[in-house]
């Protein structure tokens, strides 16, 4: 399969895989949600499921990182995460402040501690 990374055949394979096994999840989700009432208990449950899922994804990205983030120690990654959340709460509840503080804390931690 080493020849597969370029050319039209690869594009077709990527298109087929996305349409057959990836995109349908989105369609099914919208279909299932079509009659859902925002006030209903089922919707509140789905909302909790989606929220817990994304929280789990966050932990995965921080605790089991890929690429260059693997070079940063677990302590620095965790500290930067806490710093971002704390900054969000204590400095005006702004998304940009939380994200910026998290990134700065990671940069500072990497430079000072490694």
């Amino acid at each position: 399969m080493s020849e597969l990374q370029s050319g039209w055949s690869t594009a077709l394979i990527l298109l087929a895989i996305s349409l057959l096994v990836h995109e349908p999840w989105r369609w099914i989700g919208l279909f299932l949600g079509r009659n859902l009432n925002i006030e209903s208990s089922v919707f509140q449950w789905v909302r909790s499921v989606a929220t817990a899922l994304v929280a789990g994804l966050v932990m995965r990205l921080v605790l089991f990182p890929a690429g260059a983030l693997q070079g940063v120690s677990l302590g620095v990654r965790s500290f930067a995460m806490v710093a971002g959340v704390a900054a969000f709460f204590y400095i005006g509840r702004r998304l940009s402040v939380g994200v910026g503080a998290g990134a700065l804390a990671l940069a500072a931690g990497t430079l000072i501690i490694g």
């Binding site: 096994v21 989105r26 989700g29 859902l36 909302r47």
Partner: peptide
Amino acid sequence: LAGGALAVALTGIRLLPMSVALMPY
């Protein structure tokens, strides 16, 4: 490719509850 497709399908499942939750909006 079949293995790749299966793995992609697994990563895509998470989009289902997110889509359900967004649909009312």
